[in-house]
Write a protein that binds this DNA or RNA. Structure first.
Length: 595
RNA sequence: GCCAACAUAGCUCAGAUGGUAGAGCAGGCGUUUCGUAAACGUCAGGUCAGGAGUUCGAUCCUCCUUGUUGGCUCCA
């Protein structure tokens, strides 16, 4: 698996610090386990890791000891010394380190580096030594361990990792750590982790009563509670409106299809390991759908299409089921049953560039509506093994790339990273605390039009093959919901909040008036709830605040007299008493502007 | 699926070298009717994830199963 490289980061001092910290950690681990075998230990996005084969499982207490050892080594200021040697020498030095021997052999052959990326020229073999630890390593490192700030290094956790990421190879223990230039940066990183924990959609999902996953129902299957379902409905409603405005036709398709369908589509061949076992119906096998496209293709095929009909855009929030290994399931973001906001475009080759532009723009507008401002695009091109005419591939790749350029989107190219059936663009969004999430995907398909033999009648009266594009903008409603929860930290903007206003009568004598106001607000299309409990106002405010309800309307004697409500926003802002009509105007404008 | 850790009331968590468990919040019932982040009292809630073993006795020890968490791998 090819790993993308970020050269700017790799040339930074921080990268060297982290890589060096990994070596120091390895030394500290070997101090504890002299017989331990070391694998690889690179710098990664926020820190570093090192993989070990050790006689026993590490405990959190071990991590503390290792961390203390590291600090001792760091403070001693050992220099990192590089030495270039021959493969034979290297093999002698690492005679009792089987993983290193394997790496050396790889280097000898000029095959792959430690990430598994192919290496063109035969690289030189170098060692780096600090104090007692010698590692086979390309470098670079800092000059001495004292360049690592002992107050800005922290070991985070231990986990299992396969040697070279291959599940058929031994399982090693991986220790993750983080390292920064300054202690404050470490604190900030840890704060951000803490913030991420607070925003965790699984935690908020429970606290805000949005969704649950039940053992008896099944892993990776989502139960949408009323409030979560309300938000989903609002998302879908908006989505449908936008699609309607943009020339999509809506379709609905079944959840299962005969095995023949999946033979034709090719899924039984190339997607089999993600599909569930078939159901036998009167001797015929049916499969639960892992994708919606074959059904959409048959809708296309149900009639003769003229070049004048194109482009055709079929949209469906289609629920699919895919087998995922139990260990990878995660809240809403990795599940076994999910609803894709799917669509398939069929267009003439000459329409293709415009169609791409259209999808790119539409995607961005959709994501922006949900408060995402920063995007990263990834363009994946033709892999070695692929179907379809290379000229078509090239045209599609160029159209994709040109569209990204036209829209001023920062993008990276993943050479050869496309599916075998076509190139694609993925969009990742950055959420409120800067994390990346993959949502949108736009994929060309040169495979299925062929397999289903779809066509349109051209100007010349001859059948031609249309281009087909799969796209999901939000990705799946489940994942998107999870990302949204984390993006907003559960404080949904008014247009998405399941309850927009909590009415808080101060005493029981205010309940009738509160109900009257509530009816008025509901007639205006606002989602409101009256807190009729006998708690004190303060308690009601606190609860509404914890529920992250955008508006709290306090109702007491003063408000009753003047047909008003006292508005408190969840930000804590107290706007005092305002006429009910003023609140309606304010709420509506905030809902409409989606803030 | 694999490695590791974890699983106690609706939620968040305590607990004992093995003698069948508690708190806060939530919930029920009373009392209170209050002006911008928690009124007071009272009651009810648990086969300590499920199963097997060791033991006079298991929620605690051992094994298995299921699930969760962090990773590996994969991806909407």
């Amino acid at each position: 698996m090819a790993v993308k490289h970020n050269t700017e980061y790799e040339n930074s001092h921080l990268y060297r610090v982290r890589h060096s910290a990994a070596h120091v950690m390895a030394e500290a681990v070997l101090e504890l386990f002299p017989q331990g075998k070391v694998a690889i230990g690179p710098a990664i996005a926020d820190g570093f890791y090192y993989d070990f084969d050790l006689p026993r499982a590490l405990t959190p207490e071990d991590l503390e000891v290792i961390e203390q050892n590291m600090k001792k080594i760091i403070k001693a200021g050992h220099p990192f010394e590089k030495k270039v040697i021959s493969a034979a020498e290297a093999k002698k030095i690492f005679a009792d380190q089987p993983f290193k021997l394997e790496l050396i052999e790889g280097l000898e052959l000029g095959g792959t580096d430690e990430d598994g990326n192919p290496v063109d020229e035969k690289p030189e073999i170098s060692l780096y030594r600090q104090n007692t630890f010698v590692d086979l390593c390309r470098g670079p490192h800092v000059a001495t361990t004292s360049e690592i700030n002992p107050d800005a290094v922290k070991l985070l956790n231990v986990s299992g990792a396969y040697w070279r990421g291959d599940e058929k190879r031994p399982m090693l223990q991986r220790i993750y750590g983080t390292a920064w230039e300054k202690a404050e940066e470490l604190q900030e990183y840890l704060w951000k982790q803490e913030e991420a924990r607070k925003r965790d959609h699984r935690k908020l999902g429970k606290e805000l009563d949005l969704f649950s996953i039940n053992d008896e129902v099944g892993q990776g299957l989502i139960l949408w509670h009323p409030k979560g379902a309300k938000i989903r409905m609002l998302i879908e409603r908006f989505w449908i409106n936008e699609h309607e405005k943009n020339g999509y036709d809506f379709v609905y398709t079944p959840h299962i299809g005969k095995s023949q369908l999946w033979e034709t589509s090719g899924h039984l061949g190339f997607y089999n390991e993600n599909m569930y076992a078939p159901i036998d119906i009167e001797g015929t096998k049916y499969y639960i759908k892992p994708m919606n496209c074959p059904f959409h293709l048959y809708i296309y095929k149900s009639n003769i299409r003229s070049y004048r009909d194109l482009p055709i855009r079929y949209a469906e929030n289609g629920t699919v089921y895919r087998y995922e290994r139990s260990g990878v399931l995660h809240g809403l973001t990795r599940v076994r049953g999910f609803t894709q906001d799917d669509a398939h475009h069929f267009c003439r080759p000459d329409q293709m560039p415009d169609e791409i532009d259209f999808v790119v723009e539409f995607s961005i507008n959709m994501l922006k509506a949900f408060g995402f401002r920063d995007f990263q695009a990834y363009l994946s091109t033709k892999p070695e093994k692929s179907v379809g005419d290379p000229a078509q591939w090239l045209a599609a790749e160029q159209a994709l790339e040109e569209s990204l350029k036209r829209h001023n989107l920062p993008y990276e190219i993943d050479q050869g990273g496309g599916a075998f059936y076509g190139p694609k663009i993925d969009f990742k969004v950055n959420d409120a605390i800067g994390r990346e999430w993959q949502l949108t995907t736009v994929q060309f398909d040169f495979n299925e039009p062929e397999r289903f033999d779809i066509s349109f009648i051209g100007e010349d009266g001859q059948p031609q093959r249309p281009y087909m594009i799969h796209r999901a903008l939000l990705g799946s409603l489940e994942r998107f919901f999870g990302v949204l929860i984390e993006h907003y930290g559960g404080a949904f903007p008014a247009w998405l909040a399941p309850i927009q206003a909590e009415l808080i009568p101060i005493a029981d004598r205010h309940i009738d008036y509160a109900n009257k106001v509530a009816r008025e607000l509901r007639l205006e299309g606002l989602r409101v709830h009256v807190d009729v409990r006998s708690d004190r106002m303060n308690a009601k405010i606190r609860d509404a605040q914890n529920e992250k309800i955008p508006y709290m309307l306090i109702i007491g004697d003063k408000e009753m007299e003047s047909n008003a409500v006292s508005l408190r926003k969840r930000s804590g802002e107290d706007l005092g008493a305002i006429p009910v009509v003023d609140f309606i105007a304010l709420a509506r404008s905030e809902v409409d502007s989606k803030v």
